[in-house]
Design a protein around this nucleic acid. Structure first.
Lengths: 120, 120
DNA sequence: GGCCCATATCGATGTTTGTCAATATAGCGC
DNA sequence: GCGCTATATTGACAAACATCGATATGGGCC
């Protein structure tokens, strides 16, 4: 996965495109790219997107016990999805007493927007 | 996966949050959400993100034969990734003669940016 | 202390994904 | 037609993922 790229001077322009114009990987910005991939992966599951959307729509933070009954999935599955979102930095969690309160990390989401926008 | 959501009037506010404030799924906009999940899935692989970035950086379209040598992966694997990107609408393909020229579908990418931005 | 509750983790299981080598498809030039 | 080349598809396989039920963890409350 990681690393390489570089020389594409395999001479032959088999099709019409001059190899010089191809721009791969300064590898410098690969950290950002890997992060972006992780974030998009976290957002690539329908249930997780629904969870995020629900959090955004309900203005304040949500307790996990509020989320579980919404999707017809088991508590352990929801807990797993929340963990994926947490580890991708998309949501943040605060535990108070028995409950775990989740909220969207707007900054991280904005970062993903930025990365994507720079591609477009 | 699809469908339901609705009533969360399971009375008990076990934690402090009033169920009334929870906002799940008008199910109306679920099509958009499913589309978004598909796009994010296409963008969730490091190789695919690199391909897209390479296309964007090199100003014009790229021939598949230009892309294959860049990543140390087999031709069939690259072809597979391009198919995923194509089916998600993120890139477009035009075949001319023996070659397949790919370019980013900026509109689709912008759509993804918009979806993401609306969550943030 | 003991019990209940909300959440996290574990183990198993079926599905999806990324990868390859091999093969098929199809355009070009002879 | 034949042969060469670029791309697509197929089949196999290992790794990752989404899901569950069961169990562990840890905070309140009595």
């Amino acid at each position: 996965m990681a690393t390489e790229a570089k020389v594409i001077n395999t001479g032959a322009a088999c099709c019409g495109i001059e190899p010089g114009s191809i721009h791969e990987a300064d590898a410098a910005q690969d950290g950002a790219l890997v992060d972006a991939a992780t974030r998009f992966k976290a957002l690539s599951d329908e249930t997780r997107l629904r969870i995020v959307r629900t959090m955004v729509r309900s203005k304040h933070e949500l307790c996990e016990c509020n989320i579980v009954p919404l999707f017809g999935l088991s508590q352990s599955t929801i807990s797993y999805h929340l963990k994926v979102l947490r580890e991708a930095g998309i949501v943040e969690c605060e535990k108070r007493g028995l409950w775990a309160y989740y909220r969207v990390n707007t900054r991280a989401l904005m970062g993903a927007v930025k990365t994507l926008a720079e591609l477009a």
